[in-house]
Write a protein that binds this DNA or RNA. Structure first.
Lengths: 142, 142
DNA sequence: CGCAATTAAGTTGTGCGCAACTAGAAAGGG
DNA sequence: CCCTTTCTAGTTGCGCACAACTTAATTGCG
């Protein structure tokens, strides 16, 4: 290690820089769909889970209502989702995909493959990276 | 993998989530110093390199002037740095540490160790992670 | 039951990131 | 030497993240 900066520091910075670099790969395609990366993540959850409360989205994406509320409002204004009060528990707000929001799924279908191509890692390396990032998240969440 | 989401996607999300989780570890200590994580990164560069132009900082941190200009202005308002026009090339702005800014270095000295402790990875795993993140950054920067 | 404690979502305020643009200085070619 | 092109910072605008707070609904304990 040539840097006199300390390894953990570098890992943290690498994490910070790599995360931004990765989302930058998504940006051009997401731009054509009129989506940001966090909006895309929220839609993915809805595509896979169906109707989901704000709280559940927050747990899955590790985001709070301060981030999600305005984000979901923008998705609603764009016509991709609808927000309805939960019937059983009126504190909750359930997010539903609209037809338009569901249709986006096929339009965004080839995004993961694009990204996998752009990033020069083998399947093994992807798996390793995934494993290590999981450990980082696990040790920090506790 | 129970998720039907595709590995690259998950890696990207893991990257995004792990990066935020990592900076969250720094936050409590940085709060006591009155710094944000990006401000801390900028100061690290100055601690190691001495006077540095905005452009050089941008290259090292992979940030543009739209991010750095206001960040550095805040660091100047806090008394940690001074900004002076370059003498040879008057387009450039050189960032200098003040006494106070240099003094912060010792106060932040034990931060990396704290973080290394908080994250449950072996030295080998840190090295692996560092290597893989480097590859991600390299393949995306090109 | 009644009421305090908890919980869900939203709001406000601050600081990034990043795109798009501006102002001003330097470089370079005719 | 002038003028276009390039380059450095800075500004503006938007959308996250996140802390702190508000509102309203639910829980649960005496």
């Amino acid at each position: 290690m040539v840097e006199p900066t300390g390894l953990e520091q570098m890992v943290c910075f690498q994490l910070y820089a790599a995360s931004r670099a990765m989302t930058a790969i998504y940006r051009p395609t997401l731009d054509t769909l009129g989506l940001t990366y966090p909006q895309y993540l929220a839609l993915r959850v809805l595509w896979h889970r169906g109707p989901t409360t704000v709280r559940e989205l927050g747990t899955i994406l590790d985001l709070d209502s301060g981030t999600l509320s305005p984000l979901l409002k923008r998705l609603e204004n764009q016509g991709h989702v609808r927000r309805t009060r939960g019937t059983e528990d009126e504190r909750t707000v359930v997010i539903h995909l609209t037809e338009q929001g569901s249709a986006l799924r096929t339009k965004a279908a080839d995004l993961p493959a694009q990204v996998a191509c752009a990033v020069d890692l083998t399947d093994d390396e992807f798996a390793q990276l995934h494993h290590l990032l999981g450990k980082v998240r696990a040790s920090t969440t506790l």
